[in-house]
Simulated assay, not measured.
Amino acid sequence: MRFARTGAPGAERPIVSGSDGLWRDPTPLTDTIDLELMSSAERLDVDALPVIEPGRFGPPLDRVGKIICIGLNYADHARETGATPPEEPIVFLKTADTVVGPDDDVLIPRGSKKTDWEVELAVVIGATARYLDSVDQARACIAGYAISNDVSEREFQLERGGQWDKGKNCETFNPLGPWILSADEVADPQNLGLRLWVNGELRQDGTTADMIFGVDHLVWYLSQFMVLRPGDVINTGTPAGVAMGSATADYLKAGDVVELEIDGLGRQRQRFRQA
C-alpha cells in the first residue's frame, strides 16, 4: 500500500493507494498520514474509499521524528570520495524541518559553492526499536520505505570545522516522498535500483545491494545507541556519482533540475534556486 499527502504546503491532506493503484481519499477516517493509519491499513477497505486526483505531493509523513543519516554506506561512494570504507556505520542527524515535498524547490544556501545531491533509500520506523537483541528483529520495526534526497553543502560539511551538521541541515535539504510504500510491499530492500539525473544527465545509477551495512543491520545497530520511535526516518546512504566524487566537481547552481527515483518508490524532481 502507498501512503502520501497532497495539497499546498501546510494544507496537505492524506491519500492512500491500494490494490488497484488509484489514489483514494481517507479523510472520512483520518485527516493525517501517521503510523496509526499505516498500521491499521490492512484492516481498512481502502478500495471502497472515494477516488481522488492528487495535485502537489507534500512530504508523505505528517510528523517526522528524528532523521538519522548514514554516511559512506556504499563501497563505490567511499572509493569515489577517497575514504576508507567504515568498520561501523557513520551516523549523523538531520532536523525534521529540513523535510520538503518531493517536487518542491530546494534552496542553495547563501555563500554556498558546493551544494551536492544524494539519492537515498529512506526507512520509516513503525515500532519502537530499543536495544534490539538481533538483526532479525529489525524488520518488524519498519513501517515502509521512501525516496530521500540527502542534499549536502560540502564546504560547510567538511571545510568549515566541527561536525557534518552545518552542511546537512540547511533549509529544504531533505526532499522526501512522493509516497511511503508499506514494508510488506518490498520483498527485499537490498535489491532496489537507485538513479539520479542532473539536468537530464544520469549521475547516479546504483543498487541497495551495494550497501556496506544493510537496512536491517542499521535498524539493529542504531537501536543500541538511541531509541528509534514511530515516525523516525533513516537515510541509509548514497551510491557513487555525487559531485564531490567527480573530477569536474560540477556542484549545483541556481536553475539546475535534479530528478531521482528508486524502484517501486516513485520519482522526485526539484529545481534548485538561490536562497
Rank of each mutant, 00 (worst) to 15 (best):
W117Y: 15
R110E: 13
T81Q: 13
T95L: 10
T98E: 06
K94N: 06
I125M: 02
T115Y: 11
E80K: 07
L121R: 05
Q157W: 01
E80L: 04
K114L: 04
D105R: 13
D116E: 07
S134A: 15
K166D: 10
A140V: 06
G162P: 05
V91T: 08
Y74C: 02
N73Q: 04
Q137K: 11
G162T: 03
V123M: 00
A127G: 07
E80S: 07
W164D: 01
A122P: 04
V135S: 00
S112L: 05
R63E: 12
D165M: 12
D136I: 09
L132Y: 04
G126D: 04
G111T: 01
F156C: 02
K166L: 13
D116Y: 10
A140G: 08
T115W: 09
D103E: 14
S112H: 04
A146K: 01
R63A: 13
K94T: 06
G161Q: 03
T98G: 08
S134C: 08
Q157D: 02
N149T: 11
G167N: 04
G144Q: 01
Y145V: 00
V135F: 02
E88I: 13
I67C: 06
D133I: 01
A143L: 02
A143I: 03
D116A: 06
D133Y: 07
T95H: 11
L107K: 15
A83C: 09
P60E: 05
D165G: 09
S134W: 04
D97N: 15
I67L: 12
K94E: 08
N149I: 10
S134K: 06
D62M: 13
E118T: 11
R139K: 12
G126R: 00
L132H: 07
P85H: 03
T98P: 05
D97R: 11
H77Q: 03
V106L: 12
C141P: 05
I125S: 01
D62A: 15
G167T: 05
D76E: 14
Y145T: 05
A75D: 13
V119S: 07
C69N: 02
P59G: 10
G126A: 03
R63T: 15
K113L: 14
Q157P: 06
T98H: 05
Y145Q: 02
R79M: 13
R139T: 07
V119E: 04
K166Y: 11
K66N: 14
P89A: 00
T115A: 10
L158G: 03
L158Y: 09
R154T: 08
R154I: 07
T81D: 05
A75M: 07
D150P: 09
K168R: 06
D116R: 09
Y145R: 01
E80D: 07
P102S: 09
P60T: 04
D150S: 13
R160Y: 13
D150L: 10
D62R: 15
E88Q: 12
V99Q: 02
I108W: 10
N149D: 12
D105V: 09
